[in-house]
Design a protein around this nucleic acid. Sequence first.
DNA 1: GTCTATACAGCGATAGAC
DNA 2: GTCTATCGCTGTATAGAC
Lengths: 177, 177
Amino acid sequence: MSDTRTRILDLANQLTQSRGFNGFSYLDLAAEIGIKNSSIHYHFKAKSDLALAMVDRHRETTAESFARLDHDIDDPRERLLSVVRYFEADLRDGKICLCGMMAAELQSVSEEVRRELALYFRKFQDWLSKQLSEMGYSDPPRAALQFLSALEGSLLLARLQGDVTVVGQALDGFVNG
Amino acid sequence: MSDTRTRILDLANQLTQSRGFNGFSYLDLAAEIGIKNSSIHYHFKAKSDLALAMVDRHRETTAESFARLDHDIDDPRERLLSVVRYFEADLRDGKICLCGMMAAELQSVSEEVRRELALYFRKFQDWLSKQLSEMGYSDPPRAALQFLSALEGSLLLARLQGDVTVVGQALDGFVNG
DNA sequence: GTCTATACAGCGATAGAC
DNA sequence: GTCTATCGCTGTATAGAC
C-alpha cells in the first residue's frame, strides 16, 4: 500500500464528507495532492473502485475504533458520548458522516458499495445495541436504530444551521439523564 | 405560470428526491418532458434558479399541507402519523425528503437556497413542536428536533436497507404508546 | 414558447513514453 | 509510479430563427 494511495483515500474521504462523492473529480484530487489525474487512475482505475476502497477502509477503521472504545472506556454512556464528540468534531469542519452522505447519493453508487454501506450501518447498529443493552434499555436494537437515525439526521440539520449543538440535542435522551 | 414550468418543477422535484439535485441534467428533464434543453433554460435561466424555485414551492406547499392537517384531523398524534405515512409513500418510490437531500448536497447550492432550506426545517420543527405540545411533551421544541432528526436519518437508512418500516421504528416513541 | 445549432468547460478514462 | 497527450462524452448555457 503506497503512501500516495493512502493520501488519495484520505483526501477522497474528506471531500466526500463535505461535498459528496459526486462533488469532486480526479482532477481535484490530483491538484491537491500534487500529481496528475492519470496517476490517480493508476491507483484506482475507475472512480467506482475508489468509492469501494474508501467505504471498505472506513468500515474497517470504524470497527477498530469501536473495539478500542470497548477496551478503553468502562461506562457505555461515556462510549456513546465519545462517538458523538467524534462526529461533532468533523461537523466543525463542515463534514458529515461518510456513509450517511453516500446513502443520500445511493442512486449513483454500485451495488457493491451499497452492500458495504448497509454492512457499515448494521455493524454500527449492533455496536450501539450492545452499549444500550448495558445501559438497561428494554429493546436495545430498536433504541440503537433510533440513536443512529437521530445521529444521521441531526448531522444534516446541524450543518445546515451552523449549530453543532443540534447533534447533542437530538441525542439528548441517550447520552444524558 | 405555464404548464411546462410546472411540469419541469414536478420532474426536477422527483429527480432530486431520488438522485439528488446534482444527479440529473437539463437534458434529462428535456428528454422526459419531450422538449429541448434550451426550452428548460427559457423557464429557468440557470440551474440554480431551478433549485431556488423548487425549494421555495415545496416550502409553500408543505405549509399548506400542515394547515390542512390542522383543520382536518383532531388528534395531534394522528397528524404526525399522517406525515410519516406521506414520507413512507415517497420512500416506496425510492424518494427521500427533498430538503434532506439538498441539505446533504449543501456545498453545491447557493446561499439563497440554504436560507430556504433552513426556513423549511424551522417551519417543520415549529409545526411538530405544536403537535407535541398538545400531546403533553414537556419540552416540545426539543422533542420536535428529535422527531425531525430521526425522520431524516431513518429515510436514509430505510432506503438503503430497502425496508420502509425502519421509519416507523425510528419514530416509534412519538407515534405510538 | 420552442426550436436548431453551437460554444465552452469539465469529466472519466486510456495509450504510451519515461 | 508518474508523466504527457488526448479521446469521447456530457454538462450548462447562449444566440438567433421561427
